[in-house]
Every structure is written in structure tokens, then in C-alpha cells.
Simulated scan of single mutants.
Amino acid sequence: MRGSRPYPRGVNSDFKRVSEAKYVLLTTFRKDGTPVATPLWAAPDGDKILMWTVTDSYKVKRIRRNPSVTVAACDARGNPKGEPVAAVAEILDAPGTDHARDAIARRYGILGWITMKGSLLRRGKTGTIGLAITAA
């Protein structure tokens, strides 16, 4: 229907579409402004997108320095399927990381559950960290 809102009032519809994608391309920025894109699993959580990654990864280091990121729907290889959306990343604490793991495991079914459990066995609880992405 022309003129109707596909999502509730106040929700950034482009960000919402990205949050519903199977893979999300998270782009962080180096000190010199060079973009670095990484495809990740993601799970929508209200007005946020939850992601999960290795604690000592460079993307986490870049987010600590500059939380401005972009997100876009992509395929498993990181090929974008739409325009990037400006966003802000937050590194989660331990309970937030547990919530992100649970959300991703639920979203990706048995494969997500096996991946989360395997990661916990391999790296322990502190070896991975959750990210919460919100629209800018």
C-alpha cells in the first residue's frame, strides 16, 4: 500500500531490513579511515542487532577506538545485498555477551547452537564477545 509504513513508527526501516538478513556485513574503520568489512551472523533484538565475535579481533579493537560503523545485508562471503546503513557499535559485558550468544543460537538453529557450544569449549567464556549495533 503506497504511503503506509512497513515497520512501526520510529523504526529505521533500512536498519530493520538489515537486522532481518541471514548475514550482516559489519564495516569498522581503521585510524586512517579505511573501511574494513566482515560478514557476521546476527540476531535482531528489539531496536538492536546482536553479533558475536572473537574478543581480541581487530574489529573489536577498532570499535573500542571508534564505535561508528556501517551495516548491510550480505551473503556468506560478504558480498553486499543492499546499501550500508550508518550505525553505532557497543561492546557488551559478560551478561550481554551471553544474551547475544543465546539470541544467535536461537536464530541459526542447531548449527548456531553447535557453533556457540564449540566456541565455548575452544575459547572459554571470555574468548568471544557480544556486540550490540544500533542505528545512528
Rank of each mutant, 00 (worst) to 15 (best):
G127Y: 12
I91S: 04
N12C: 07
S68F: 14
A103S: 05
I63S: 05
D93S: 10
M116N: 04
R30P: 01
L25I: 00
P84V: 00
V88A: 11
R30L: 12
R107M: 02
R17C: 01
K16Q: 12
A136K: 14
I104H: 04
D32H: 08
P80W: 14
A86E: 15
L25F: 08
V36H: 14
A43I: 01
K48P: 03
G10P: 06
R101M: 04
Y23I: 02
T70C: 10
V60S: 05
P8V: 06
T53S: 10
W41G: 05
D93A: 10
A76I: 11
L25W: 09
I63P: 14
A132S: 10
A37Q: 13
M116G: 02
E90A: 13
P39A: 04
T28H: 06
K59R: 15
A43N: 02
R65F: 12
V88M: 10
L111M: 13
V85F: 15
T27K: 05
T28E: 02
L111R: 14
L40A: 03
P67Q: 11
G33N: 04
K125H: 10
R62T: 06
V60A: 07
D102H: 13
A136T: 09
T70Y: 12
A21Y: 14
N66C: 10
T115V: 10
P6E: 00
P80D: 03
S19T: 11
T34S: 03
T70S: 08
A76N: 09
A42E: 01
D45S: 15
A73I: 01
A87R: 09
A105W: 12
K61W: 11
N79M: 07
R9S: 14
R2Q: 03
K22D: 08
E90M: 07
G109R: 05
T70K: 14
R65W: 09
A100V: 01
V85I: 01
K48V: 07
A87G: 08
N12K: 09
D102N: 06
F29P: 03
A72F: 15
E90W: 08
D93W: 11
A132C: 03
I63Y: 13
D75N: 14
